[in-house]
Design a protein around this nucleic acid. Structure first.
Lengths: 119, 119
DNA sequence: CTTTATGGTATCCAATGGAAACCAAGTGCC
DNA sequence: GGCACTTGGTTTCCATTGGATACCATAAAG
C-alpha cells in the first residue's frame, strides 16, 4: 500500500478531502460537535442550507462514519444526529478553519477591495 | 459591527469559508506554502486540476490577498506564485485537514463499506 | 377542516466544473 | 521557410451539481 498523498489524483485521500473541504460539512459538523441536534433544528441554525443539501450532507457524513442518525417513533417522527468520536476528531481540526475565517475576514475583505480597485 | 458568525447567512465570514472550504484551494495553497511555484508546475503537481480551475483558484487566492502573482518578461513568459504572510497563516490551519484525511482515510473507508453493505 | 409540525423526496432550472480547443509570442528543428 | 513545442492562460461546450419549490404521510392543535 502506498503512502497517502492528497496530491495524487487516484489517492483515496483525495475523495475524503473532497467531502471534507465542503462548506456545509464544515458548518454542520461544527454544530453537531457541540451536541446532538434534530434535522429541522440544524436547518434553522445553518442559515441558508436547503433541505436537500442538508439531507445530502448528513447522509455523506453518516456514510463516512462521522455522524450517527437515530430515529424515534414519535409523532411526528424525531430524528437525532450526533457526531461520532471520529467526527469529533475531524470537527476539532476544522474549528481552526472557522476561527481563521472569523479572525482574518477583515484582512481578506481589505485585500479584495484593493484587488477590485486596480481591476 | 456584529461579531463574525459563519452560521449567519449574510455574514461575510460565510463568503470566506466558501472560498476556503474548497478542494483546489486546500491543495494549491498547501504547495505554495512550501515555496514559490510556476503555473504549469502547480498544474503538474496538483494532479487532476484543469487549467481553468487552477487559473480561477489562483485568481481567487490573489484577490483574497493569500497569494501573489509575479510575471517575468522571459520567453516564454514566466509567472511565479507565492503565498503571502496571510496565506501562510491559512495554510498552517489547513495542514491539519490534509493530515487528518491521510490519517483517518482507512477508518473512513471502513465506515463507507459498512454503510454500503447495509444499504 | 385547515393549519402546524416532523423529516424527508421529487422536480425543475440556474450555476458550476471539467475536457478540449484555441491563442500569442518566440525558439528550436529539419 | 514552415512545423512543432513551450509558456500561461481564455473560450467554448456539455455534464454534473446546487438551490428553490412543491409534494408526501402522519397526527395533533385550533
Amino acid at each position: 500500500m502506498q503512502p497517502a498523498n492528497a496530491y495524487a489524483a487516484q489517492c483515496p485521500t483525495r475523495l475524503v478531502l473532497d467531502r471534507v473541504a465542503d462548506k456545509w460539512t464544515v458548518l454542520v459538523l461544527g454544530l453537531l460537535a457541540e451536541g446532538p441536534l434534530r434535522f429541522n433544528e440544524l436547518r434553522r441554525r445553518v442559515e441558508g442550507v436547503s433541505q436537500k443539501m442538508l439531507s445530502q450532507t448528513l447522509k455523506g457524513l453518516e456514510r463516512d462514519g462521522l455522524v450517527t442518525r437515530r430515529a424515534y417513533a414519535t409523532v411526528p417522527v424525531t430524528v437525532e444526529y450526533r457526531a461520532t468520536p471520529l467526527g469529533h476528531t475531524l470537527s476539532a481540526t476544522l474549528d481552526p478553519l472557522r476561527i481563521w475565517a472569523e479572525t482574518y475576514i477583515a484582512e481578506v475583505q481589505a485585500a479584495q477591495r484593493r484587488y477590485d480597485a486596480v481591476a
